[in-house]
Simulated scan of single mutants.
Amino acid sequence: MDNTFDQKVIWITGASSGLGKFMACEFAKQNGILALSARRTSELEKVLVEVKKLGGDGMVVPCDILEEQQVENAVMEIIKQYGRLDVAIANAGFGIYGRIEKITAKDWKRQLDGNVTGLAMTAKYAIPHLKISKGRMVLIGSVAAYIPNPNTGAYGASKAAVRSIGQTLQIELRGSGVSCTVIHPGFVDSDIARVDNEGILHPESKDPRPKNLMWPTDKAAKVMVAAIAKRRKSYVFTGHGKFLAFIGQHFPVLARWMIGKLG
């Protein structure tokens, strides 16, 4: 078994469900020490129980990434408890959906505050401690950063910003010993498409994404942790995600035509 993260202190935002939860479990299998952040404390406690069952350890650090002071306080709590930080994963995020002509300024602000500013603040407060440990900064993007997609313009714009932030950090952190990995998942089984523009989960809602292209969350978490271990600069997955990202980068006219045909 890989032991890259044995006794490493790993902070994950958005750790109460989905990719954050399953990444925590993967790190736990390597005896990692998890600092779990999100708004839902009760759900974080459940994840911590799973982490300990799998051989890891950790603590719950409630944090709303929309509040800068809470982000700073979360890092301070982790350092107070463990004295170090080895990996920081800016995973918390959500999607605002609707055609650009329909999305309100309030929607845009919430989308960018969460997926861009919250992520940037996570990096801001983690990096000074990662420089001490020669650690890993991880940003969770999306294949949406590479391709246009009707009704997800705000989300795509936010993830394009994540990609740009990652590329900038890779230059700014050069020589510091800190790596910055930006991960761009394709379709992964999660609740993101069942959360409305006000942040309310509707578990009964149908996920509009194609089921045949959806990866199980545990499978996705495994490849993400492997990419973080290797300090990859950019990692795109699933198979369809890699294809769409390639087309979007190198054949943008074809990408627009394809997405238009898919609706």
Rank of each mutant, 00 (worst) to 15 (best):
T104A: 13
V143R: 01
G153E: 12
G98H: 02
A161R: 04
T122P: 08
Q167M: 15
I100D: 10
F94P: 00
N91W: 05
S158W: 09
L112V: 15
G118P: 05
I100N: 10
Q167V: 14
I171E: 13
T117K: 12
V138M: 10
A160V: 02
A90K: 01
C180M: 10
V87T: 00
Y125V: 10
N115H: 05
A88S: 14
G175Q: 06
S176V: 03
G175K: 07
R174K: 15
G156L: 05
P150R: 07
S142Q: 08
G114S: 13
Y125L: 12
R163G: 11
K134G: 13
G114R: 01
G93Y: 05
G93M: 11
V143I: 13
N151H: 08
N91H: 06
Y97A: 11
D113Y: 08
L130R: 02
V178P: 00
Y125T: 10
N151S: 11
G156S: 15
I89H: 04
R174W: 11
G135S: 00
I127G: 02
S176D: 05
H129P: 01
A120F: 15
T104V: 13
N149I: 10
W108P: 08
G95K: 00
Y155D: 04
F94G: 11
Q111K: 02
A92Q: 02
I183T: 02
A92L: 06
G141K: 05
D113C: 11
R163S: 11
G93F: 08
S158P: 08
S176M: 08
A160T: 04
I89F: 09
A92D: 05
Y155N: 04
I171W: 12
S133W: 01
